[in-house]
């Protein structure tokens, strides 16, 4: 479980990024529990998915580049995929919520 002798240019930014990413993802999930209505809750996990995963992916790139002694960038694929797909799920969920709320209001009247 021990990664032997990572150079300083990995550990210093890596430590900062991991602490920030972990905290951001946790705050995002906390917002999922704490915020009051659904549209507001949509915003909270976005912190984790964009900035949180960004931090972890950059650290992962740094660590594997240092381990293998050559630039490794395949984490960029995950970043790209997450960035491209997150809006689609958010938009569909938001539209579903608006639609379902409208139906519920109509049936209550």
């Amino acid at each position: 479980m021990t990664t032997p002798g990572l150079p300083l240019w990995v550990t210093v930014p890596g430590t900062l990024l991991l602490v920030a990413g972990g905290l951001l993802a946790m705050i995002g999930a906390l917002g999922l529990v704490r915020l009051r209505d659904f549209p507001s809750r949509m915003h909270a996990p976005t912190i984790g998915t964009t900035l949180g995963s960004g931090c972890v992916l950059v650290t992962s790139m740094l660590v594997s580049s240092a381990m293998l002694g050559r630039p490794v960038a395949h984490e960029l694929l995950i970043t790209l995929f997450v960035v491209v797909t997150a809006p689609i799920t958010a938009m569909l969920l938001m539209r579903a919520a608006v639609y379902r709320d409208a139906i519920r209001k109509r049936s209550r009247r």
């Binding site: 960035v83 491209v84 997150a86």
Partner: peptide, 15 residues
């Protein structure tokens, strides 16, 4: 524009 707005926390594209 939808990608940018939704990727930014605090704003979500509705329609």
């Amino acid at each position: 524009l939808a990608t940018i707005i939704t990727a930014t926390p605090g704003t979500v594209w509705v329609g």
